[in-house]
């Protein structure tokens, strides 16, 4: 029961609202604090030392390579999960039953297993293979395994919610080939799933750390790895400024993700 126009709320309502606000504050206050710290001249003195962008510029100068690398890997990761994940989701929607469930679960394993284990497994197997180890594609492989299930699940959920079979049967009876049906009917119908999956893949790839810390080399330092480095070795204002740069990349994606999810829910 949703009490929409109830002005006289019960004490239970107010205490629950208070609790929820406290939880939200717990999540947001540190975000605000870190942004402020990154813009403060001297954190020890506090805000009275004045606001500045010098830390952000400093981070931009010394770490922008990591930002471009992270973006590049995220886009490549998106491309590969699109090319391989969307068809795989379609196949899973066609082949229902125990086999499909098993395949789905197997694809989920890289998410269920600790990233550290997957990264170690990749290193002991392919670490000595030519210069693959020092190439950015080595990180890409890890990110691909980790993000693929999110694309597959997102698309699969949409495919299972529309009666694709009837649509396709209709097109087929009119003589449409498989490729025509896939591109003309399947892809347009699962657009919302593709959009949501894509945003999720980008967000996860940009923020991935557990695997990347082991997979990276000094030449292939991604943004979260650079962040860890800055937190450990540089003054707190620089770490905070770096965090601001990271937020600027990831927060728009997260907001887009929420909007996409909201649209889906209201359809």
């Amino acid at each position: 029961m949703k009490s929409t126009f109830n002005i006289h709320r019960s004490p239970v309502f107010w205490s629950l609202l208070g609790f929820t606000i406290v939880v939200a504050a717990f999540l947001l206050v540190p975000v605000v604090l870190s942004i402020l710290t990154g813009l403060t001249n001297n954190q020890f003195v506090g805000l009275s030392s004045g606001l500045t962008l010098k830390w952000v510029f400093k981070v931009w100068e010394s770490y922008q390579d990591s930002l471009w690398l992270s973006l590049g890997i995220a886009v490549a990761c998106l491309a590969s999960t699109l090319v391989m994940g969307v068809p795989a989701a379609y196949v899973l929607s066609r082949v229902q039953g125990k086999l499909a469930r098993t395949i789905e679960e197997m694809l989920m394993l890289p998410v269920a297993l600790p990233g550290l284990a997957t990264a170690l497994a990749l290193i002991v197997t392919y670490g000595a293979l030519g210069n693959f180890r020092t190439h950015w594609t080595f990180i890409l492989v890890g990110h691909f395994l980790f993000t693929l299930p999110f694309m597959v699940r997102s698309v699969l959920a949409v495919l299972l919610s529309v009666d694709m079979h009837t649509l396709e049967e209709g097109a087929r009876s009119l003589g449409a080939t498989f490729v025509q049906r896939f591109c003309g009917i399947v892809l347009p119908n699962c657009r919302s799933g593709i959009v949501a999956g894509s945003l999720m893949v980008l967000t996860l790839s940009i923020g991935e750390f557990n695997m990347t810390l082991l997979l990276h080399t000094p030449l292939t330092q991604t943004l979260p790895v650079g962040l860890a480095d800055a937190y450990a070795s540089l003054r707190i204002e620089v770490g905070s400024a770096y965090t601001i740069v990271f937020f600027m990349m990831i927060v728009p994606l997260l907001i887009a993700l929420q909007l996409a999810g909201g649209r889906k829910a209201h359809k």
Binding site: T20, L27, L28, L227, Y231, T243, V251, L254, L257
Partner: peptide
């Protein structure tokens, strides 16, 4: 409440 959904562990440590 759902905004920090995909913050990586390093950032959360911070």
């Amino acid at each position: 409440l759902t905004l920090p959904l995909a913050f990586p562990g390093v950032v959360i440590g911070f």
